[in-house]
């Protein structure tokens, strides 16, 4: 992938982190994957890395301390952070969770376990988005 922005993964399950790492490896994405185990840690990392913000946030909903929805609300309230696309990855197929996600401006909603093909589709869309953003600037 030409664009080397990092990807922030917010996930508290070791199994899920391994799966995303594996998908990146398998699909040949060389972008750095940064993982944090809850929304609070994720926000703190974003604040510390204002000059090098990720190009994408992959967000689990059910996390301790600060859950996914709360994190998403805080990100979308921030003038700079709100530009980062956030894709929700959750086991919940419940329409109300999906609606809640999109109401909070999530860029996508994926039901776990996520298959390679779904990852590929989502990451390709993001790459396209990054390319367009670069052309525009």
């Amino acid at each position: 992938m030409k664009n080397q922005r990092s990807v922030l993964l917010l996930e508290d399950s070791a199994l899920e982190i391994k799966k995303v790492e594996r998908a990146f490896q398998k699909l040949g994405f060389e972008n750095t994957l940064v993982s944090k185990i809850n929304g609070k840690e994720g926000l703190a990392w974003l604040m510390e890395n204002q000059d090098n913000l990720p190009g994408l946030i992959l967000l689990d909903l059910n996390m301790p301390i600060m859950d996914g929805f709360e994190f998403l609300e805080k990100v979308k309230e921030d003038k700079v952070l709100k530009m980062i696309p956030v894709v929700i990855m959750t086991t919940s197929k419940h329409p109300s969770d999906k609606l809640k996600g999109f109401e909070r401006q999530a860029a996508g909603y994926m039901v776990k376990p996520v298959r390679y093909s779904d990852f590929l589709e989502m990451l390709s869309t993001m790459k396209h988005y990054w390319d367009i953003s670069e052309l525009a600037t």
């Binding site: 399950s13 199994l15 059910n62 301790p64 086991t91 197929k93 419940h94 776990k112 376990p113």
Partner: peptide
Amino acid sequence: AETIHALRTKIRTFGILSIDELSENLEY
């Protein structure tokens, strides 16, 4: 609810089909 939710990713990853739907209902 939190614990069943955490177990569900494992249930799906390892295809424990006998409790996939049940776990979703119990969490809900």
